[in-house]
Design a protein around this nucleic acid. Structure first.
Length: 679
DNA sequence: GAGCACTGC
């Protein structure tokens, strides 16, 4: 309860304090800075609509708010609602951790409270909330996790799903869950906030929820299209950057490309051309695997008289915002992960962006003053070929993790779950089939004990099944370390200028069994090294990714402890570790074909090869692989040798030479191994 | 013997 006297009347007026008022949340006198910030907050477009926003949420259980860039929706609307609703907690979800952190910190300032007290954030690995927290910014995945222990979301009186237009996997699942919770909790309020379009789609899904549209505050951006389609988007992008550099006035350039390699190539070319023209230009690459200190270089303003040219992936479309950009070069492409449920193969493909993305990219030019956007495609392409919005993640993903977590949340009838965009029946079937193979669901489709324990772990079902198996085979510590390493971006760095040296250093970690055990060697060496920074430098390991693996391992270990999984390191570790992995990956194995040149997967006899980055130096008869990646060929990434008798022992149904459906050649090898099988 | 968009639990 507020202490002291507060002259602010209850309700919405609380946010618009005057001199002498005390903080309605804490009872403390407002600081000078509070009033300074308040002055600028009052100018945000959101501020004009605050009564409407509050009324809408009060009158309707679910509502939609479209707030364009610069409207202030993310920071202001939750404050309005908190002031008006008085009691109860408000959750505001974000797709990304950094956003949850930085917005919470900003709002804490605006409300004149200490971050982590009345205003806080909750993300994986960090809980910056306390008992007094009333406004909680969190990742959407975190709210989903919370539902496992509190399916009615009972601690909240309002739930705001922000950036809903991004349609992350977690947001889409939360949509469906919330719809059910709202029926059981009539007092609960839900507000879906989105930046773009799709308003009707949201309204329709939320059965006619009211809609409030708040304009943004941005500078105009003039958009140009090419007259003819470009054959070579990379060359066209480089050319356009150079032309702007020479012919346009001051202002930084942001150029969107698809991947690391082409970005580095483009940077080199633009730099070379800029030198020829004698322009003072700073060319900077930007992509997520770039070390942090190099990523940070894009933010400071260019030196006096110079121009910054930033060549970036999609990371600059939503995750990072760079001020000072006046020109945007947009080839209209990005890399997208697509999952084919029929073949079970994921592939990373260059695909056209959506109209919504194109608008978002163009908007990056109008943050500080009027800008220009050069689209390297025709107006006709834009109008006729670009989809309205990007395909939601849920309809292009492997659903096994989604299905197991819904089962754990008590959603039994997954097929009739109210998805805004229902995934294909085939994708659903494949996921159920996979979970059945893993023993996570029974013949009736109900979650088994094993499945229930698997769902506690924030990893893919193949991996959580491996964890359960490891606890039964006295190798949990080691398997958790390997899984942590498999869950982070590749930890072995191989800089262009020192590839040989990197390969030599990495050899120290090599295990003859293959990549899983090599990852373990690297992790153990890292953990026990004195100076970790120095160790990573000397051994060409990415310190960022190693630290992340350490975090993941800690979290997994703590979940395992709570689940009372057995953790004793036993004998014959290399044997039991591989045996544990088979439990989760017996469907992801491949055998050498008769010619001894290619591998065939056991799942569908697809031709695959060991990835060149593998530690495996020879071609073992049977390997287990973590994943396949498709480029010009199909590669198995992270592969480990498996003796055939171990496969028969683990899964006679799939590997018994007389019962399995494998090629004759594979059966021949299995037959030879049969006498060695321990029954 | 070749390449990893971007997130999240």
């Amino acid at each position: 309860m507020p202490k002291g006297r507060s002259r602010s009347p209850p309700g919405l007026q609380r946010v618009d304090a005057g001199p002498g008022d005390t903080n309605w949340l804490t009872g403390r006198t407002y600081s000078k800075r509070f009033f300074e910030i308040l002055k600028s907050r009052r100018k945000l477009p959101c501020w004009q609509k605050r009564q409407e926003a509050v009324d809408m949420v009060q009158k309707h259980q679910s509502s939609v708010l479209i707030g364009e860039t610069g409207s202030g929706k993310t920071t202001q609307v939750p404050q309005f609602l908190l002031a008006e609703f008085g009691s109860g907690k408000i959750a505001v979800t974000q797709p990304r951790r950094v956003a949850a952190m930085s917005v919470a910190s900003r709002v804490a300032q605006e409300m004149d409270v200490e971050l982590g007290q009345e205003v806080g954030y909750l993300i994986r690995f960090e809980d910056m909330t306390s008992e007094s927290t009333r406004l909680k910014y969190m990742t959407d995945g975190m709210l989903l996790r919370e539902c496992q222990t509190d399916p009615l979301m009972s601690q909240y009186s309002v739930i705001i799903l922000d950036e809903a237009h991004e349609r992350t996997l977690s947001t889409d699942i939360l949509f469906g869950l919330l719809k059910e919770v709202l029926q059981r909790r009539p007092e609960l309020r839900c507000l879906v906030m989105s930046a773009t379009l799709e308003a009707e789609k949201f309204q329709e899904y939320w059965s006619g929820a009211p809609l409030l549209r708040i304009p943004g505050r941005m500078f105009p951006v003039e958009t140009f299209f090419t007259l003819r389609p470009e054959k070579d988007y990379l060359a066209a992008a480089v050319e356009t950057c150079c032309l702007i550099n020479v012919h346009e006035g001051p202002g930084d350039i942001l150029c969107f490309l698809c991947g690391e390699e082409e970005i580095e190539k483009a940077c080199a070319e633009i730099e070379g051309r800029a030198e020829e023209t004698g322009k003072n230009t700073l060319v900077l690459p930007l992509y997520s695997s770039l070390p942090m200190n190099q990523q940070r270089r894009v933010f400071p303003p260019a030196p006096e008289g110079a121009r910054k040219i930033i060549v970036a992936t999609n990371i600059a479309e939503t995750s990072l915002t760079i001020d000072g950009v006046v020109f945007v070069v947009d080839p209209g492409l990005f890399k997208q992960m697509l999952y084919n449920p029929r073949t079970h193969v994921e592939s990373l493909l260059v695909s056209p962006i959506s109209k919504a993305s194109a608008m978002q990219r163009a908007g990056r030019a109008g943050r500080t003053r009027p800008g220009k956007c050069f689209r390297l495609y025709t107006l006709e392409t834009f109008e006729k070929e670009l989809p309205e919005s990007t395909y939601p993640e849920i309809i292009r993903s492997n659903l096994s993790a989604v299905v197991i977590s819904l089962k754990k949340l008590g959603v039994d009838d997954i097929v009739h779950f109210d998805f805004m965009e229902p995934p294909s029946p085939e994708a659903m079937m494949r996921a159920l089939e996979m979970l059945h193979f893993l023993g996570a669901i029974d013949d009736e489709g109900d979650l088994t004990d094993v499945g229930s324990r698997m769902a506690d772990f924030p990893v893919d079902p193949h991996l959580s099944r491996t964890i359960i198996a490891a606890s039964e085979r006295a190798c949990l510590t080691e398997v958790l370390a390997i899984i942590a390493m498999l869950s982070v971006p590749p930890p072995f760095s191989r800089p262009r200028y020192a590839q040989k040296a990197a390969d030599r250093a990495h050899k120290h970690f090599a295990s003859g069994y293959g990549d899983h055990l090599s990852l373990l060697n690297a992790f153990q060496a890292y953990v026990s090294s004195g100076s970790k920074t120095q160790f990573c430098q000397e051994n060409f390991l990415s310190e960022r990714n190693m630290k992340q693996a350490e975090n993941v391992r800690k979290q997994l270990a703590s979940i395992a402890r709570k689940a009372k999984l057995e953790d004793a390191s036993g004998e014959m570790l290399t044997h039991s570790i591989r045996r544990a992995f088979i439990e989760g990956f017996f469907m992801q194995c491949a055998h050498l074909d008769e010619s001894g040149k290619h591998y065939l997967t056991v799942r569908d006899q697809q031709m695959v090869a060991i990835h060149p980055s593998s530690f495996l130096q020879h071609k073992p008869e049977w390997v287990l692989y973590h994943e396949t990646v498709v480029t010009d060929r199909c590669y198995m990434r992270n592969a480990t040798t498996i003796p055939p008798e171990m496969l028969i022992e683990a899964s006679p149904k799939f590997y018994h030479p007389e019962r399995c459906k494998l090629h004759e050649h594979a059966r021949k090898i299995l037959r030879r191994a049969l006498p060695r099988v321990k029954s």
